[in-house]
Simulated scan of single mutants.
Amino acid sequence: MKRILVGDIGGTKTRLALAEGEGTAVVLTEVRTYPSLHYATLELVLEEYVTQVGFPVEGIALGVAGPVSRQRAQVTNLPWVVESAALRQRFGVQCILLNDLEAVAWGLPALRGDELFSLQEGVPSEGNRAVIAAGTGLGEAGIHWDGTRFHPFATEGGHTSFAPRTEREIALWRFLQARHGHVSWERVVSGMALPELHEFLRAHEHSSIPAWLQAVLEGASAGAVLAQAALEATDPLCVELMHWFVRLYGAEAGNLALKVMSRGGVYVGGGIAPKILPLLRQPGFLESFVDKGRMRPLLEAMPVQVILTDQVALYGLALAARSSRIC
């Protein structure tokens, strides 16, 4: 594999690196992260990166948080439009665009054992796989097994309609529907969802926000603060919030697993999962994952693993670029 520039383009941050390697092994160098909202366009990020590290590459492969059509993408949670033709003209090398979760799916073969944590051993077998990843938004992808090889494919499953299961979740749906109209799974399982879930819980439980927490929320990433307060057990409502969040996450992971028929395994990625691994290891996630009535035995047989590295999409972009022969 010749050296290429790979980039994971998210609503919060953009991670760029140089990639090379052989087989399914990918070696990344010059890994750098940029705050996406600080830049008007992706081209400005790439130009800054090239200025910093140089440009000894044979191609560019980018994973974009949004639907990709004809090598053009509107980033879902950013005012960026990305086009491979424009990037090829600007930088003088071939460029491919993938959905970011499709890139993660491509990257699974490159993962080492210490980059995965098993939540459910299941009964490992050949078959389709599924990837779900909560970060700024909620991404989902599938991997079709044709009997010989895997074929990753993108979805926009995170934008399908949220299905409440309890009276409290019905109340949450009404709360969010009044604000947003369509209530997607991304509205309840993502980093941007956490502040609204917290706001709803405060109202639902008739609980006021502690002054210390209010002060911290005003100066930092609200979702990260709420999750950390739960992990440290410094606020009971935050603890309740994150346990609920984990159950919602498990429910949608189970939905995706059934739709893809992922006998080959379900992979939980994204920026949130490694940070809340102690909560994912508790019963709530898997209880919701398998709670599908008559399909429970099918889901109990599916391996479920958490992706611990934030570089899997970069691995996948390198492998996809080699498969497409741009490098």
Score class of each variant (00 low, 15 high):
Ala61Trp: 02
Ala61His: 10
Ala61Cys: 15
Ala61Thr: 00
Leu62Arg: 13
Leu62Val: 12
Gly63Ile: 12
Gly63Lys: 09
Val64Met: 08
Ala65Asp: 08
Ala65Pro: 15
Ala65Ile: 11
Gly66Ser: 10
Gly66Asn: 06
Gly66Thr: 02
Gly66Val: 03
Pro67Leu: 14
Pro67Val: 15
Pro67Asn: 10
Val68Asp: 06
Val68Ile: 06
Ser69Cys: 03
Ser69Lys: 05
Gln71Trp: 10
Gln71Pro: 09
Arg72Asp: 03
Arg72Phe: 00
Ala73Val: 11
Val75Ala: 15
Val75Gly: 03
Thr76Glu: 01
Thr76Ala: 09
Leu78Trp: 05
Trp80Ala: 06
Val81Gly: 07
Val81Phe: 12
Val81Leu: 14
Val82Leu: 12
Val82Ala: 15
Ser84Cys: 09
Ser84Tyr: 11
Ser84His: 12
Ala85Glu: 13
Ala86His: 11
Leu87Trp: 02
Arg88Cys: 15
Gln89Ser: 14
Arg90Gln: 03
Phe91Met: 10
Val93Glu: 12
Val93Lys: 15
Cys95Glu: 02
Leu97Gly: 07
Leu97Arg: 09
Asn99Ser: 07
Asn99Ala: 08
Leu101Ser: 14
Ala103Asn: 04
Ala103Lys: 08
Val104Asp: 01
Ala105Gln: 01
Ala105Ile: 02
Ala105Glu: 00
Trp106Ala: 03
Trp106Cys: 06
Trp106Asp: 10
Gly107Cys: 10
Leu108Thr: 05
Pro109Thr: 06
Pro109Ala: 02
Ala110Asn: 03
Leu111Pro: 02
Arg112Met: 05
Arg112Asn: 14
Gly113His: 08
Gly113Tyr: 04
Asp114Cys: 03
Glu115Trp: 05
Glu115Tyr: 03
Glu115Asp: 00
Leu116Trp: 12
Gln120Ser: 15
Glu121Arg: 11
Glu121Lys: 08
Glu121Thr: 08
Gly122Thr: 13
Val123Gly: 00
Pro124His: 02
Ser125Arg: 15
Gly127Thr: 05
Asn128Cys: 05
Asn128His: 15
Arg129Met: 15
Arg129Lys: 14
Ala130Cys: 11
Ala133Lys: 06
Ala133Gln: 06
Ala134Phe: 13
Gly135Phe: 11
Thr136Asp: 09
Thr136Trp: 13
Gly139Arg: 13
Gly139Val: 12
Glu140Ser: 14
Glu140Thr: 07
Ala141Thr: 13
Ala141His: 13
Ala141Pro: 12
Gly142Val: 05
Ile143Tyr: 04
Asp146Ala: 05
Gly147Ser: 13
Gly147Ala: 13
Thr148Asp: 09
Arg149Met: 06
Pro152Leu: 08
Pro152Tyr: 02
Pro152Thr: 06
Pro152Gln: 07
Pro152Asn: 08
Thr155Ala: 14
Gly158Glu: 04
His159Arg: 03
Thr160Ala: 00
Thr160Pro: 04
Ser161Phe: 02
Ser161Glu: 04
Phe162Cys: 01
Ala163Thr: 00
Ala163Ile: 01
Pro164Gln: 10
Pro164Ala: 12
Arg165Tyr: 10
Arg165Pro: 02
Arg165Gln: 15
Arg165Trp: 09
Thr166Arg: 09
Thr166Pro: 00
Arg168Pro: 01
Arg168Tyr: 07
Glu169Gln: 15
Ile170Ala: 13
Leu172Trp: 00
Arg174Ala: 08
Leu176Met: 12
Leu176Trp: 01
Leu176Glu: 04
Gln177Ala: 13
Ala178Thr: 04
Arg179Val: 03
Arg179Leu: 01
Gly181Met: 11
Gly181His: 04
Gly181Asp: 01
Gly181Phe: 10
Gly181Cys: 01
